[in-house]
Computed example of a mutant assay.
Amino acid sequence: MPLLRTAVFRTAAFAAILSAGLSGLVTPAQAQAKPNIVVMGEDADEDSVPRGNRIFQRVITELSETMNLRGYNVYDETAVAMGFTQPNRVRRRDAELIEVARAVQNPPVDVVAVFQVYASASKSAYSDIVRPEVRIPGRLLNVRTGQSLGAFEVAGVQLPPLPQGCDRECLLERVGAEAKTIAADVAAALTAKLDGVVAPRRGTDAGGPAFTAPPLAGGAPAAVPGGEACGGLPTAYTVKLSGFSAQEVQAAEEYMAAFRCYEHHRPVRSGGASAEYWYETRSDSARLGRNLRLMLEHMSAPGQVQFSGNTFVISRVATR
């Protein structure tokens, strides 16, 4: 028991160091950059406007530009994925789009904005007036976890009738102009939803800085002061511990729950010398990796921290 109390005390002290040190290097406004976004069109439905169509291109350009002006880092799908996938494929399903987004490593993609475009023209039952109809649904997905971050659709808008003798060129230009306007509304709604997801939260709400250790013998609980905001996209990582003793695994779990911007964690599997966690945080991978390396140093446990995709592997290096 004295050994466990000492470990808990060290955990609380280490959390205080993290709270006052690492996170103090940046202001709350700079603590988290806005997520990287790729806008992708799903055109598997034969009734939707295919990729490469003039209307499709105007919609994807407007969506990207609106999100870019709202402060998000928007990357062109062709530019970031052309090295490992054919850029001109059409009629792609959402499963393919998500796999492509996950495969992009430079830069890592956090959010994919998936949209569809449906365009048609209907003639009035009482006259020769022809009106174009455009419907654009869009949704946001967390690339790493698959979590839905929001969806919005614009449809049913009364569009101006087409002029008499409107040929194919006229139809593409008129419908494209209307689709561009609708796309701006969809993008504004999706960015508003994303703003709500990445909005800063007070440190005590985020979990990490409010860590309180169990009371020591004859003393009060050791608490870590909080209060700083934690902003950014909630992200889930897989954290694997290998080669640690049961006591070290327990101590490491306490450390990880004390990191700033911590949200939630859940054990996935556990053994005598290993453990695996689903770890949710608003910290980016760089900060989390730095905290994990400092955790090993503070535990006086020689080891290595490896990161790939969304998985951290922490290996204990055995010594004599």
Rank of each mutant, 00 (worst) to 15 (best):
E96Y: 13
N106F: 08
A16E: 12
E133D: 11
M256N: 06
Q32C: 12
V112L: 08
R287L: 11
A183C: 07
R135N: 08
N142M: 02
A246C: 03
E65Y: 10
A44F: 13
A189I: 05
V130Q: 05
R5S: 11
R201D: 01
V39K: 00
R58S: 15
E248Y: 06
A29E: 15
A220E: 15
M256Y: 10
E77M: 10
V104N: 00
P160W: 00
S120R: 14
P225G: 08
V154D: 08
A179W: 02
N142I: 04
R282V: 06
G231K: 05
M40I: 08
E153C: 08
L159H: 09
A275D: 02
R92S: 10
A246Y: 03
C261F: 03
L140R: 02
S283T: 10
G272L: 12
Y279F: 15
G219N: 12
R282N: 02
E173I: 08
S242I: 09
L292S: 06
Q57M: 15
P215Q: 11
L63H: 05
A220T: 15
P107D: 04
G309I: 06
P2N: 10
S19P: 03
L4H: 11
G272A: 15
D284K: 04
T11C: 09
I136D: 00
V104R: 00
M295S: 13
V39G: 00
L172R: 10
W278F: 09
R70L: 03
E297R: 12
V49N: 00
S270L: 09
C261P: 02
M40V: 09
L288V: 11
V80S: 01
L171M: 11
G226V: 01
S120I: 03
S285H: 10
T212P: 02
N53G: 12
M256S: 09
T145F: 00
A113C: 13
V90K: 14
R293K: 14
Y75R: 02
A252H: 02
T85I: 15
L25T: 13
A257T: 14
W278V: 05
S283A: 15
R269H: 09
G227H: 01
S122K: 12
R92Q: 15
T281D: 00
A217L: 15
A103N: 09
S245N: 05
A121S: 15
A103G: 06
G289W: 04
A301V: 14
E276A: 15
R54D: 10
I17W: 10
E173S: 13
I60T: 15
Y72C: 00
I129P: 01
A44S: 13
G52Q: 06
E254K: 09
N310A: 11
F14N: 08
R10I: 08
A44T: 07
Q30R: 15
T145K: 02
Q304M: 12
I136W: 00
G243K: 06
A252N: 05
Q32E: 14
A229P: 00
L159S: 07
V317F: 05
V157R: 15
G243Q: 04
V239L: 12
V26P: 01
A184Y: 02
S124L: 05
V111C: 01
L141E: 00
S283Q: 13
E169S: 10
P215T: 11
D94H: 08
F211N: 05
